[in-house]
Design a protein around this nucleic acid. Structure first.
Lengths: 292, 292
DNA sequence: TATAATTAATAAATATTATTTATAGGTGTT
DNA sequence: AACACCTATAAATAATATTTATTAATTATA
Protein backbone atom coordinates (compact mmCIF):
# COMPACT_ATOMS: atom_id res chain seq x y z
CA UNK A 1 0.00 0.00 0.00
CA UNK A 2 0.86 3.53 -0.69
CA UNK A 3 0.42 6.87 1.00
CA UNK A 4 -0.26 8.54 -2.31
CA UNK A 5 -3.20 6.23 -2.94
CA UNK A 6 -4.59 7.09 0.46
CA UNK A 7 -4.33 10.79 -0.25
CA UNK A 8 -5.98 10.32 -3.61
CA UNK A 9 -8.77 8.34 -2.04
CA UNK A 10 -9.33 10.88 0.69
CA UNK A 11 -9.60 13.70 -1.80
CA UNK A 12 -11.79 11.61 -4.05
CA UNK A 13 -14.23 10.92 -1.28
CA UNK A 14 -14.28 14.62 -0.51
CA UNK A 15 -14.57 15.94 -4.07
CA UNK A 16 -16.67 13.05 -5.35
CA UNK A 17 -15.08 13.43 -8.75
CA UNK A 18 -12.15 11.63 -10.34
CA UNK A 19 -11.25 14.49 -12.62
CA UNK A 20 -11.47 17.14 -9.91
CA UNK A 21 -9.27 15.04 -7.69
CA UNK A 22 -6.78 14.63 -10.51
CA UNK A 23 -6.79 18.37 -11.08
CA UNK A 24 -6.18 18.96 -7.39
CA UNK A 25 -3.05 16.83 -7.36
CA UNK A 26 -2.00 18.02 -10.81
CA UNK A 27 -1.99 14.53 -12.22
CA UNK A 28 -3.93 13.00 -15.08
CA UNK A 29 -7.37 11.56 -14.47
CA UNK A 30 -6.45 7.89 -15.03
CA UNK A 31 -3.98 8.20 -12.18
CA UNK A 32 -6.92 8.44 -9.81
CA UNK A 33 -8.77 5.64 -11.51
CA UNK A 34 -5.75 3.38 -11.16
CA UNK A 35 -5.09 4.40 -7.59
CA UNK A 36 -8.62 3.46 -6.66
CA UNK A 37 -8.30 0.21 -8.55
CA UNK A 38 -5.17 -0.64 -6.60
CA UNK A 39 -6.98 -0.08 -3.33
CA UNK A 40 -10.03 -2.03 -4.38
CA UNK A 41 -8.03 -4.97 -5.61
CA UNK A 42 -5.78 -4.93 -2.55
CA UNK A 43 -8.77 -5.24 -0.24
CA UNK A 44 -11.01 -7.10 -2.62
CA UNK A 45 -13.95 -4.75 -2.03
CA UNK A 46 -15.69 -2.04 -4.01
CA UNK A 47 -14.98 1.28 -2.31
CA UNK A 48 -17.10 3.67 -4.39
CA UNK A 49 -20.28 3.38 -6.42
CA UNK A 50 -19.54 4.61 -9.93
CA UNK A 51 -22.30 5.72 -12.21
CA UNK A 52 -20.04 7.59 -14.61
CA UNK A 53 -21.75 10.94 -14.54
CA UNK A 54 -21.46 14.11 -12.52
CA UNK A 55 -21.82 14.14 -8.73
CA UNK A 56 -23.06 10.58 -8.65
CA UNK A 57 -20.04 9.25 -6.84
CA UNK A 58 -20.79 7.67 -3.48
CA UNK A 59 -18.72 5.70 -1.02
CA UNK A 60 -19.77 2.17 -0.20
CA UNK A 61 -19.80 1.21 3.49
CA UNK A 62 -16.36 -0.28 2.92
CA UNK A 63 -15.26 3.02 1.43
CA UNK A 64 -16.58 4.98 4.36
CA UNK A 65 -14.81 2.61 6.67
CA UNK A 66 -11.53 2.99 4.82
CA UNK A 67 -11.93 6.74 4.72
CA UNK A 68 -12.05 6.90 8.52
CA UNK A 69 -8.86 4.94 8.88
CA UNK A 70 -7.13 6.99 6.21
CA UNK A 71 -8.00 10.11 8.14
CA UNK A 72 -6.12 8.81 11.14
CA UNK A 73 -3.16 7.58 9.16
CA UNK A 74 -2.69 10.86 7.36
CA UNK A 75 -3.03 12.73 10.63
CA UNK A 76 -0.30 10.59 12.11
CA UNK A 77 1.77 11.24 9.02
CA UNK A 78 1.46 14.97 9.62
CA UNK A 79 2.61 14.53 13.17
CA UNK A 80 5.72 12.76 11.91
CA UNK A 81 6.63 15.78 9.85
CA UNK A 82 6.05 18.17 12.71
CA UNK A 83 7.94 16.10 15.23
CA UNK A 84 10.92 15.44 13.04
CA UNK A 85 11.10 19.05 11.98
CA UNK A 86 11.24 20.02 15.63
CA UNK A 87 13.98 17.55 16.42
CA UNK A 88 15.92 18.54 13.31
CA UNK A 89 15.73 22.25 13.95
CA UNK A 90 16.22 21.80 17.69
CA UNK A 91 13.50 24.40 18.02
CA UNK A 92 10.57 23.63 20.28
CA UNK A 93 7.36 25.44 19.45
CA UNK A 94 5.91 26.44 22.79
CA UNK A 95 2.39 27.77 23.16
CA UNK A 96 2.23 30.68 25.56
CA UNK A 97 -1.00 32.32 26.73
CA UNK A 98 -0.08 35.81 27.96
CA UNK A 99 -1.46 35.76 31.49
CA UNK A 100 0.04 32.43 32.39
CA UNK A 101 3.33 33.14 30.71
CA UNK A 102 3.85 36.39 32.58
CA UNK A 103 3.13 34.59 35.82
CA UNK A 104 5.22 31.46 35.23
CA UNK A 105 8.09 32.50 33.02
CA UNK A 106 9.96 34.58 35.61
CA UNK A 107 9.93 31.53 37.87
CA UNK A 108 11.77 29.33 35.37
CA UNK A 109 13.76 31.88 33.43
CA UNK A 110 17.10 31.36 35.15
CA UNK A 111 16.75 27.59 34.95
CA UNK A 112 15.99 27.77 31.24
CA UNK A 113 18.98 30.02 30.79
CA UNK A 114 21.29 27.73 32.73
CA UNK A 115 20.13 24.72 30.71
CA UNK A 116 20.63 26.70 27.50
CA UNK A 117 17.03 26.13 26.50
CA UNK A 118 16.08 29.76 25.93
CA UNK A 119 17.26 29.71 22.33
CA UNK A 120 15.49 26.44 21.56
CA UNK A 121 12.10 27.82 22.51
CA UNK A 122 10.09 29.26 19.70
CA UNK A 123 7.26 31.12 21.42
CA UNK A 124 3.77 31.06 19.92
CA UNK A 125 1.64 33.55 21.80
CA UNK A 126 -2.10 33.01 21.60
CA UNK A 127 -5.22 32.22 23.60
CA UNK A 128 -5.53 28.86 25.34
CA UNK A 129 -8.30 27.69 23.08
CA UNK A 130 -6.36 28.28 19.88
CA UNK A 131 -3.21 26.83 21.42
CA UNK A 132 -4.94 23.58 22.26
CA UNK A 133 -6.02 23.25 18.64
CA UNK A 134 -2.48 23.85 17.40
CA UNK A 135 -1.25 21.23 19.82
CA UNK A 136 -3.63 18.62 18.48
CA UNK A 137 -2.63 19.19 14.88
CA UNK A 138 1.05 19.01 15.75
CA UNK A 139 1.73 22.65 14.92
CA UNK A 140 2.79 23.13 18.53
CA UNK A 141 5.07 20.82 20.45
CA UNK A 142 4.07 21.83 23.92
CA UNK A 143 1.93 24.51 25.45
CA UNK A 144 1.06 26.26 28.62
CA UNK A 145 -2.71 26.43 28.87
CA UNK A 146 -5.23 28.02 31.19
CA UNK A 147 -8.36 25.97 31.54
CA UNK A 148 -11.25 25.27 33.88
CA UNK A 149 -11.20 21.60 32.92
CA UNK A 150 -8.55 18.99 32.23
CA UNK A 151 -7.77 17.93 28.65
CA UNK A 152 -9.79 14.94 27.50
CA UNK A 153 -7.90 14.20 24.30
CA UNK A 154 -6.23 10.80 24.76
CA UNK A 155 -3.30 11.90 22.64
CA UNK A 156 -2.45 14.71 25.03
CA UNK A 157 -0.63 14.38 28.31
CA UNK A 158 -0.55 17.16 30.84
CA UNK A 159 0.79 18.35 34.14
CA UNK A 160 -1.12 20.60 36.49
CA UNK A 161 1.25 23.38 37.46
CA UNK A 162 -1.13 25.41 39.59
CA UNK A 163 -4.81 25.43 40.46
CA UNK A 164 -5.76 29.08 40.68
CA UNK A 165 -9.05 30.84 41.32
CA UNK A 166 -11.08 33.43 39.54
CA UNK A 167 -11.34 36.75 41.35
CA UNK A 168 -13.39 39.90 41.23
CA UNK A 169 -10.98 42.82 41.24
CA UNK A 170 -11.13 46.60 41.50
CA UNK A 171 -8.82 49.57 41.88
CA UNK A 172 -7.54 50.17 45.39
CA UNK A 173 -9.05 53.65 45.01
CA UNK A 174 -12.49 52.09 44.69
CA UNK A 175 -14.10 51.85 48.11
CA UNK A 176 -16.84 49.38 48.95
CA UNK A 177 -18.94 48.96 52.02
CA UNK A 178 -18.20 45.54 53.40
CA UNK A 179 -19.30 42.80 53.51
CA UNK A 180 -19.82 42.83 49.77
CA UNK A 181 -22.80 41.04 48.36
CA UNK A 182 -23.15 39.51 44.92
CA UNK A 183 -26.18 41.67 44.18
CA UNK A 184 -24.08 44.79 44.79
CA UNK A 185 -22.19 43.99 41.62
CA UNK A 186 -25.12 45.00 39.47
CA UNK A 187 -24.28 48.60 40.32
CA UNK A 188 -20.75 48.36 38.93
CA UNK A 189 -19.19 48.91 35.52
CA UNK A 190 -17.31 45.88 34.21
CA UNK A 191 -14.22 45.65 32.01
CA UNK A 192 -13.69 42.11 30.78
CA UNK A 193 -11.55 39.89 28.64
CA UNK A 194 -13.24 39.19 25.33
CA UNK A 195 -14.60 36.04 23.74
CA UNK A 196 -11.20 34.55 22.91
CA UNK A 197 -10.68 33.81 26.58
CA UNK A 198 -12.13 31.20 28.93
CA UNK A 199 -12.90 34.09 31.23
CA UNK A 200 -15.88 35.02 29.14
CA UNK A 201 -17.56 31.65 29.58
CA UNK A 202 -16.84 31.48 33.27
CA UNK A 203 -18.15 35.01 33.74
CA UNK A 204 -21.35 34.11 31.93
CA UNK A 205 -21.72 31.00 34.02
CA UNK A 206 -21.19 33.15 37.10
CA UNK A 207 -23.73 35.85 36.17
CA UNK A 208 -26.35 33.29 35.29
CA UNK A 209 -25.81 31.23 38.39
CA UNK A 210 -26.05 34.24 40.68
CA UNK A 211 -28.65 36.10 38.62
CA UNK A 212 -26.54 39.20 38.20
CA UNK A 213 -27.03 41.44 35.16
CA UNK A 214 -23.69 43.23 34.93
CA UNK A 215 -22.99 46.44 33.06
CA UNK A 216 -20.13 45.54 30.73
CA UNK A 217 -18.62 48.76 29.39
CA UNK A 218 -15.60 47.36 27.57
CA UNK A 219 -14.03 44.10 26.43
CA UNK A 220 -10.46 43.48 25.32
CA UNK A 221 -8.16 40.60 24.53
CA UNK A 222 -5.26 42.44 26.22
CA UNK A 223 -5.20 41.65 29.89
CA UNK A 224 -2.51 44.23 30.64
CA UNK A 225 -4.77 46.91 29.23
CA UNK A 226 -7.59 45.54 31.32
CA UNK A 227 -5.50 45.75 34.49
CA UNK A 228 -4.45 49.29 33.70
CA UNK A 229 -8.05 50.38 33.20
CA UNK A 230 -9.04 48.74 36.45
CA UNK A 231 -6.18 50.49 38.25
CA UNK A 232 -7.43 53.78 36.80
CA UNK A 233 -10.74 52.91 38.42
CA UNK A 234 -12.60 52.88 35.11
CA UNK A 235 -14.43 49.77 36.23
CA UNK A 236 -14.09 46.48 38.06
CA UNK A 237 -13.23 43.15 36.50
CA UNK A 238 -13.26 39.40 36.71
CA UNK A 239 -10.05 37.51 36.15
CA UNK A 240 -7.92 34.64 37.37
CA UNK A 241 -5.65 35.46 40.28
CA UNK A 242 -2.80 34.42 38.00
CA UNK A 243 -3.01 37.84 36.39
CA UNK A 244 -2.79 39.88 39.56
CA UNK A 245 -0.42 38.09 41.90
CA UNK A 246 2.28 40.60 42.79
CA UNK A 247 0.36 43.33 41.00
CA UNK A 248 -0.02 46.67 42.82
CA UNK A 249 -2.92 49.09 42.68
CA UNK A 250 -5.53 46.39 42.65
CA UNK A 251 -7.72 44.88 45.33
CA UNK A 252 -9.55 41.57 45.34
CA UNK A 253 -13.20 41.76 46.26
CA UNK A 254 -14.01 39.11 48.85
CA UNK A 255 -17.46 37.76 48.20
CA UNK A 256 -18.67 35.14 50.67
CA UNK A 257 -19.87 31.76 49.36
CA UNK A 258 -18.80 32.40 45.82
CA UNK A 259 -18.69 29.06 43.97
CA UNK A 260 -16.60 29.07 40.82
CA UNK A 261 -14.65 26.46 38.85
CA UNK A 262 -10.87 26.38 39.32
CA UNK A 263 -8.49 27.88 36.78
CA UNK A 264 -5.81 25.30 36.03
CA UNK A 265 -2.39 26.32 34.80
CA UNK A 266 -1.45 23.35 32.66
CA UNK A 267 1.52 22.12 30.74
CA UNK A 268 0.18 20.08 27.84
CA UNK A 269 1.96 18.04 25.17
CA UNK A 270 1.28 15.22 22.75
CA UNK A 271 2.29 11.99 24.41
CA UNK A 272 3.72 10.75 21.14
CA UNK A 273 6.39 13.45 21.15
CA UNK A 274 8.14 12.28 24.30
CA UNK A 275 11.26 10.76 22.72
CA UNK A 276 12.79 14.20 22.19
CA UNK A 277 15.25 14.71 25.10
CA UNK A 278 15.16 18.51 24.71
CA UNK A 279 11.40 18.51 25.04
CA UNK A 280 11.69 16.14 27.96
CA UNK A 281 13.96 18.55 29.77
CA UNK A 282 11.56 21.40 29.15
CA UNK A 283 8.70 19.40 30.59
CA UNK A 284 10.74 18.60 33.68
CA UNK A 285 11.55 22.25 34.27
CA UNK A 286 8.00 23.49 33.89
CA UNK A 287 6.44 20.72 35.91
CA UNK A 288 8.68 21.42 38.90
CA UNK A 289 8.27 25.15 39.20
CA UNK A 290 9.11 26.27 42.74
CA UNK A 291 6.31 27.85 44.75
CA UNK A 292 7.53 31.38 44.77
CA UNK B 1 6.22 7.91 1.52
CA UNK B 2 5.72 4.25 1.51
CA UNK B 3 4.24 1.64 3.81
CA UNK B 4 6.97 -0.80 2.88
CA UNK B 5 9.63 1.59 4.09
CA UNK B 6 7.79 1.98 7.35
CA UNK B 7 7.67 -1.77 7.82
CA UNK B 8 11.33 -2.08 6.99
CA UNK B 9 12.18 0.65 9.46
CA UNK B 10 10.08 -0.88 12.20
CA UNK B 11 11.78 -4.25 11.78
CA UNK B 12 15.17 -2.60 11.52
CA UNK B 13 14.69 -0.80 14.80
CA UNK B 14 13.64 -4.09 16.34
CA UNK B 15 16.36 -6.31 14.87
CA UNK B 16 19.06 -3.65 14.88
CA UNK B 17 20.59 -5.20 11.82
CA UNK B 18 20.20 -4.39 8.14
CA UNK B 19 20.96 -7.88 6.94
CA UNK B 20 18.69 -9.58 9.45
CA UNK B 21 15.87 -7.26 8.48
CA UNK B 22 16.49 -8.02 4.82
CA UNK B 23 16.40 -11.73 5.59
CA UNK B 24 13.12 -11.31 7.43
CA UNK B 25 11.41 -9.71 4.45
CA UNK B 26 13.21 -11.99 1.98
CA UNK B 27 14.77 -9.10 0.16
CA UNK B 28 18.39 -8.21 -0.44
CA UNK B 29 20.34 -6.18 2.09
CA UNK B 30 20.68 -2.99 0.01
CA UNK B 31 16.90 -2.82 -0.11
CA UNK B 32 16.91 -1.96 3.56
CA UNK B 33 19.76 0.47 3.17
CA UNK B 34 17.91 2.29 0.44
CA UNK B 35 14.62 2.26 2.30
CA UNK B 36 16.27 3.93 5.26
CA UNK B 37 17.97 6.41 2.96
CA UNK B 38 14.62 7.32 1.48
CA UNK B 39 13.18 8.00 4.91
CA UNK B 40 16.20 9.96 6.06
CA UNK B 41 16.27 12.12 2.97
CA UNK B 42 12.52 12.64 3.04
CA UNK B 43 12.66 14.03 6.56
CA UNK B 44 16.17 15.41 6.35
CA UNK B 45 17.24 13.78 9.62
CA UNK B 46 19.47 10.90 10.57
CA UNK B 47 17.27 8.15 11.98
CA UNK B 48 19.86 5.60 13.11
CA UNK B 49 23.45 5.79 14.30
CA UNK B 50 25.54 3.57 12.06
CA UNK B 51 28.87 2.33 13.25
CA UNK B 52 28.93 -0.27 10.51
CA UNK B 53 29.49 -3.18 12.77
CA UNK B 54 27.44 -5.75 14.65
CA UNK B 55 24.78 -4.75 17.15
CA UNK B 56 26.00 -1.20 17.21
CA UNK B 57 22.88 0.08 15.54
CA UNK B 58 20.94 2.59 17.59
CA UNK B 59 18.01 4.87 16.87
CA UNK B 60 18.55 8.60 17.11
CA UNK B 61 15.87 10.57 19.00
CA UNK B 62 14.36 11.33 15.61
CA UNK B 63 14.34 7.61 14.87
CA UNK B 64 12.66 6.79 18.15
CA UNK B 65 10.10 9.46 17.42
CA UNK B 66 9.41 8.10 13.97
CA UNK B 67 9.22 4.56 15.32
CA UNK B 68 6.37 5.54 17.64
CA UNK B 69 4.35 7.06 14.85
CA UNK B 70 5.01 4.09 12.60
CA UNK B 71 3.66 1.82 15.29
CA UNK B 72 0.37 3.67 15.21
CA UNK B 73 0.17 3.84 11.47
CA UNK B 74 0.78 0.13 11.05
CA UNK B 75 -1.76 -0.62 13.73
CA UNK B 76 -4.32 1.44 11.88
CA UNK B 77 -3.37 -0.38 8.71
CA UNK B 78 -4.16 -3.67 10.41
CA UNK B 79 -7.54 -2.36 11.43
CA UNK B 80 -8.28 -1.51 7.82
CA UNK B 81 -7.71 -5.11 6.82
CA UNK B 82 -9.87 -6.42 9.62
CA UNK B 83 -12.70 -4.00 9.00
CA UNK B 84 -12.79 -4.44 5.27
CA UNK B 85 -12.60 -8.21 5.57
CA UNK B 86 -15.63 -8.08 7.85
CA UNK B 87 -17.61 -5.88 5.50
CA UNK B 88 -16.60 -8.00 2.53
CA UNK B 89 -17.48 -11.30 4.15
CA UNK B 90 -20.60 -9.87 5.76
CA UNK B 91 -19.54 -11.80 8.83
CA UNK B 92 -19.36 -9.98 12.14
CA UNK B 93 -17.00 -11.44 14.70
CA UNK B 94 -18.83 -11.14 17.99
CA UNK B 95 -17.12 -11.75 21.31
CA UNK B 96 -19.32 -13.72 23.70
CA UNK B 97 -18.47 -14.39 27.33
CA UNK B 98 -20.51 -17.45 28.39
CA UNK B 99 -22.38 -16.10 31.40
CA UNK B 100 -23.50 -12.93 29.71
CA UNK B 101 -24.33 -14.64 26.47
CA UNK B 102 -26.58 -17.21 28.10
CA UNK B 103 -28.39 -14.43 29.89
CA UNK B 104 -28.76 -11.99 26.99
CA UNK B 105 -28.97 -14.09 23.88
CA UNK B 106 -32.42 -15.55 24.51
CA UNK B 107 -33.74 -12.00 24.85
CA UNK B 108 -32.59 -10.98 21.37
CA UNK B 109 -32.70 -14.27 19.54
CA UNK B 110 -36.01 -13.80 17.78
CA UNK B 111 -35.09 -10.24 16.76
CA UNK B 112 -31.77 -11.42 15.34
CA UNK B 113 -33.61 -14.14 13.49
CA UNK B 114 -36.20 -11.76 12.09
CA UNK B 115 -33.48 -9.34 10.92
CA UNK B 116 -31.59 -12.25 9.35
CA UNK B 117 -28.53 -11.45 11.40
CA UNK B 118 -28.04 -14.88 12.91
CA UNK B 119 -25.98 -16.12 9.97
CA UNK B 120 -23.78 -13.00 9.92
CA UNK B 121 -22.64 -13.49 13.47
CA UNK B 122 -19.43 -15.40 13.91
CA UNK B 123 -19.30 -16.17 17.62
CA UNK B 124 -15.97 -16.02 19.46
CA UNK B 125 -16.49 -17.46 22.93
CA UNK B 126 -13.95 -16.44 25.53
CA UNK B 127 -13.44 -14.60 28.83
CA UNK B 128 -14.09 -10.86 28.99
CA UNK B 129 -10.45 -10.02 29.51
CA UNK B 130 -9.27 -11.84 26.40
CA UNK B 131 -12.18 -10.50 24.38
CA UNK B 132 -11.28 -6.92 25.17
CA UNK B 133 -7.76 -7.55 23.87
CA UNK B 134 -9.09 -9.05 20.65
CA UNK B 135 -11.32 -6.04 20.25
CA UNK B 136 -8.42 -3.63 20.52
CA UNK B 137 -6.36 -5.42 17.91
CA UNK B 138 -9.27 -5.55 15.50
CA UNK B 139 -9.61 -9.32 15.65
CA UNK B 140 -13.11 -8.84 16.99
CA UNK B 141 -15.68 -6.44 15.60
CA UNK B 142 -17.88 -6.18 18.63
CA UNK B 143 -18.14 -7.91 21.96
CA UNK B 144 -20.31 -8.44 24.94
CA UNK B 145 -18.22 -7.95 28.04
CA UNK B 146 -18.69 -8.34 31.75
CA UNK B 147 -16.73 -5.82 33.75
CA UNK B 148 -16.66 -3.98 37.04
CA UNK B 149 -15.41 -0.84 35.35
CA UNK B 150 -16.12 0.99 32.12
CA UNK B 151 -13.68 0.77 29.20
CA UNK B 152 -11.08 3.56 29.17
CA UNK B 153 -9.66 2.96 25.72
CA UNK B 154 -10.52 6.04 23.63
CA UNK B 155 -10.85 3.87 20.53
CA UNK B 156 -13.64 1.85 22.07
CA UNK B 157 -17.26 2.86 22.40
CA UNK B 158 -19.68 1.01 24.60
CA UNK B 159 -23.25 0.70 25.77
CA UNK B 160 -24.22 -0.39 29.24
CA UNK B 161 -26.85 -3.09 28.81
CA UNK B 162 -27.33 -3.96 32.46
CA UNK B 163 -25.74 -3.13 35.78
CA UNK B 164 -25.88 -6.35 37.77
CA UNK B 165 -24.63 -7.28 41.20
CA UNK B 166 -22.37 -9.94 42.58
CA UNK B 167 -24.09 -12.47 44.82
CA UNK B 168 -23.22 -15.13 47.30
CA UNK B 169 -25.14 -18.25 46.35
CA UNK B 170 -25.82 -21.70 47.77
CA UNK B 171 -27.96 -24.74 47.12
CA UNK B 172 -31.56 -24.44 48.26
CA UNK B 173 -30.82 -27.57 50.29
CA UNK B 174 -28.25 -25.65 52.29
CA UNK B 175 -29.90 -24.13 55.36
CA UNK B 176 -28.51 -21.13 57.16
CA UNK B 177 -29.53 -19.46 60.37
CA UNK B 178 -30.54 -15.94 59.47
CA UNK B 179 -29.55 -13.19 59.55
CA UNK B 180 -26.35 -14.26 57.89
CA UNK B 181 -23.16 -12.53 58.85
CA UNK B 182 -20.07 -12.09 56.73
CA UNK B 183 -17.94 -13.85 59.32
CA UNK B 184 -20.15 -16.93 59.05
CA UNK B 185 -18.75 -17.44 55.57
CA UNK B 186 -15.40 -18.56 56.93
CA UNK B 187 -17.11 -21.83 57.90
CA UNK B 188 -18.18 -22.60 54.34
CA UNK B 189 -16.57 -24.40 51.40
CA UNK B 190 -16.28 -22.26 48.29
CA UNK B 191 -16.42 -23.19 44.63
CA UNK B 192 -15.26 -20.32 42.43
CA UNK B 193 -14.59 -19.22 38.91
CA UNK B 194 -10.87 -19.32 38.14
CA UNK B 195 -8.35 -16.61 37.35
CA UNK B 196 -9.59 -16.02 33.80
CA UNK B 197 -12.63 -14.27 35.21
CA UNK B 198 -13.17 -10.88 36.81
CA UNK B 199 -14.91 -12.78 39.58
CA UNK B 200 -11.59 -13.82 41.00
CA UNK B 201 -10.41 -10.24 41.52
CA UNK B 202 -13.69 -9.09 42.96
CA UNK B 203 -13.76 -12.04 45.32
CA UNK B 204 -10.25 -11.24 46.52
CA UNK B 205 -11.20 -7.61 47.00
CA UNK B 206 -14.23 -8.79 48.95
CA UNK B 207 -12.33 -11.20 51.22
CA UNK B 208 -9.66 -8.63 51.97
CA UNK B 209 -12.12 -5.85 52.63
CA UNK B 210 -14.19 -7.95 55.02
CA UNK B 211 -11.27 -9.90 56.47
CA UNK B 212 -12.69 -13.29 55.57
CA UNK B 213 -10.34 -16.22 54.93
CA UNK B 214 -12.51 -18.50 52.78
CA UNK B 215 -11.96 -22.20 52.21
CA UNK B 216 -11.79 -22.52 48.43
CA UNK B 217 -12.15 -26.19 47.52
CA UNK B 218 -12.39 -25.91 43.74
CA UNK B 219 -11.99 -23.45 40.88
CA UNK B 220 -13.21 -23.78 37.32
CA UNK B 221 -13.60 -21.68 34.21
CA UNK B 222 -16.94 -23.35 33.47
CA UNK B 223 -19.70 -21.52 35.24
CA UNK B 224 -22.34 -24.13 34.37
CA UNK B 225 -20.23 -26.73 36.15
CA UNK B 226 -19.92 -24.35 39.07
CA UNK B 227 -23.69 -23.90 39.27
CA UNK B 228 -24.26 -27.66 39.13
CA UNK B 229 -21.82 -28.24 41.95
CA UNK B 230 -23.48 -25.56 44.04
CA UNK B 231 -26.89 -27.11 43.37
CA UNK B 232 -25.49 -30.44 44.53
CA UNK B 233 -24.57 -28.58 47.72
CA UNK B 234 -20.86 -29.29 47.31
CA UNK B 235 -20.15 -25.75 48.39
CA UNK B 236 -21.30 -22.16 48.13
CA UNK B 237 -20.14 -19.65 45.56
CA UNK B 238 -19.72 -16.06 44.56
CA UNK B 239 -20.97 -14.97 41.16
CA UNK B 240 -22.81 -12.25 39.31
CA UNK B 241 -26.57 -12.47 39.42
CA UNK B 242 -26.40 -12.63 35.62
CA UNK B 243 -25.52 -16.29 35.95
CA UNK B 244 -28.42 -17.30 38.18
CA UNK B 245 -31.43 -15.27 37.10
CA UNK B 246 -34.13 -17.78 36.27
CA UNK B 247 -31.98 -20.59 37.59
CA UNK B 248 -33.68 -23.12 39.93
CA UNK B 249 -32.15 -24.98 42.86
CA UNK B 250 -30.10 -22.02 44.01
CA UNK B 251 -30.62 -19.46 46.74
CA UNK B 252 -29.01 -16.05 47.14
CA UNK B 253 -27.52 -15.38 50.52
CA UNK B 254 -28.67 -11.99 51.75
CA UNK B 255 -25.84 -10.34 53.65
CA UNK B 256 -26.63 -6.95 55.15
CA UNK B 257 -24.40 -3.98 54.28
CA UNK B 258 -22.37 -5.82 51.69
CA UNK B 259 -20.51 -3.26 49.55
CA UNK B 260 -19.33 -4.56 46.20
CA UNK B 261 -18.63 -3.04 42.79
CA UNK B 262 -21.29 -3.42 40.11
CA UNK B 263 -21.01 -5.97 37.33
CA UNK B 264 -21.68 -4.19 34.05
CA UNK B 265 -22.98 -6.08 31.04
CA UNK B 266 -21.45 -4.10 28.22
CA UNK B 267 -21.62 -4.00 24.48
CA UNK B 268 -18.24 -2.75 23.28
CA UNK B 269 -16.98 -1.92 19.79
CA UNK B 270 -14.28 0.10 18.09
CA UNK B 271 -15.71 3.48 17.26
CA UNK B 272 -13.88 3.43 13.96
CA UNK B 273 -15.94 0.49 12.78
CA UNK B 274 -19.28 2.28 12.85
CA UNK B 275 -19.78 2.77 9.09
CA UNK B 276 -20.82 -0.86 8.65
CA UNK B 277 -24.66 -0.86 8.56
CA UNK B 278 -24.86 -4.54 9.55
CA UNK B 279 -22.79 -3.85 12.62
CA UNK B 280 -24.87 -0.79 13.30
CA UNK B 281 -28.03 -2.85 13.30
CA UNK B 282 -26.48 -5.37 15.66
CA UNK B 283 -25.54 -2.60 18.07
CA UNK B 284 -29.08 -1.24 17.97
CA UNK B 285 -30.57 -4.60 18.79
CA UNK B 286 -28.27 -5.34 21.68
CA UNK B 287 -28.47 -1.88 23.17
CA UNK B 288 -32.27 -1.99 23.32
CA UNK B 289 -32.80 -5.36 24.93
CA UNK B 290 -36.24 -5.49 26.58
CA UNK B 291 -36.30 -5.93 30.33
CA UNK B 292 -37.59 -9.44 30.52
C1' DT C 1 49.06 -9.42 13.43
C1' DA C 2 47.39 -11.34 9.51
C1' DT C 3 43.25 -13.45 7.88
C1' DA C 4 38.64 -14.79 7.68
C1' DA C 5 33.97 -13.56 8.54
C1' DT C 6 30.44 -10.38 8.95
C1' DT C 7 28.24 -6.02 8.16
C1' DA C 8 26.67 -1.94 5.63
C1' DA C 9 27.22 1.29 1.62
C1' DT C 10 27.46 2.22 -3.31
C1' DA C 11 27.00 1.86 -8.45
C1' DA C 12 24.91 0.03 -12.22
C1' DA C 13 21.54 -3.05 -14.12
C1' DT C 14 17.05 -4.73 -13.79
C1' DA C 15 12.40 -5.29 -12.28
C1' DT C 16 8.40 -3.33 -10.71
C1' DT C 17 5.09 0.15 -10.24
C1' DA C 18 2.96 4.62 -11.15
C1' DT C 19 1.67 7.91 -14.44
C1' DT C 20 0.63 9.75 -18.93
C1' DT C 21 -1.22 9.90 -23.54
C1' DA C 22 -4.62 8.71 -26.46
C1' DT C 23 -8.98 6.94 -26.92
C1' DA C 24 -13.45 4.81 -26.18
C1' DG C 25 -17.81 4.46 -23.97
C1' DG C 26 -21.04 6.00 -20.83
C1' DT C 27 -24.78 9.71 -19.10
C1' DG C 28 -27.23 13.97 -18.67
C1' DT C 29 -28.35 18.47 -21.00
C1' DT C 30 -29.95 21.41 -24.58
C1' DA D 1 -29.23 14.21 -32.08
C1' DA D 2 -25.34 16.75 -30.79
C1' DC D 3 -22.66 18.35 -27.15
C1' DA D 4 -20.37 18.56 -22.78
C1' DC D 5 -18.73 16.05 -19.21
C1' DC D 6 -17.35 12.09 -16.83
C1' DT D 7 -14.72 7.54 -16.01
C1' DA D 8 -12.39 3.31 -17.88
C1' DT D 9 -8.94 1.01 -20.60
C1' DA D 10 -4.68 -0.04 -23.34
C1' DA D 11 -0.22 0.89 -24.45
C1' DA D 12 3.80 3.72 -23.85
C1' DT D 13 6.64 6.05 -20.75
C1' DA D 14 8.44 7.70 -16.46
C1' DA D 15 9.56 7.00 -11.87
C1' DT D 16 10.80 4.08 -8.21
C1' DA D 17 12.26 -0.09 -5.83
C1' DT D 18 15.12 -4.01 -5.82
C1' DT D 19 18.93 -6.90 -7.13
C1' DT D 20 23.62 -8.12 -8.31
C1' DA D 21 28.18 -7.34 -7.76
C1' DT D 22 31.51 -5.02 -5.38
C1' DT D 23 33.95 -2.26 -1.86
C1' DA D 24 35.07 -0.56 2.67
C1' DA D 25 34.83 -1.03 7.44
C1' DT D 26 34.91 -3.63 11.63
C1' DT D 27 35.45 -7.54 14.70
C1' DA D 28 36.65 -12.31 15.79
C1' DT D 29 40.13 -15.79 15.74
C1' DA D 30 44.05 -18.45 14.28
Amino acid sequence: MNFKDLRYFQKLSEKKSFSETAKFFQVSQPTITYALKRLESEYGVMLVERKSYANSLQLTPAGTQLQQHIQRILHEDQLISHDLRRIKSRQIKVGLPPIITNYLFPKVFSTLRREKLLSTIEPIVNGSHKLEQLLQTGQLDISLLGSTSLPQDPNLSYQIIRAHQFKLIASIDHHFKMPLNITDLAQEDFILLDEQSVHQQVFQYFTQKYQVVPNVIYQTSEYRLLLDLVKQNQGISFITETAILGEGGIQQLPIPNLQLPPFYLLLVYRNSSLPDPQLQKLIDIFSTIPFL
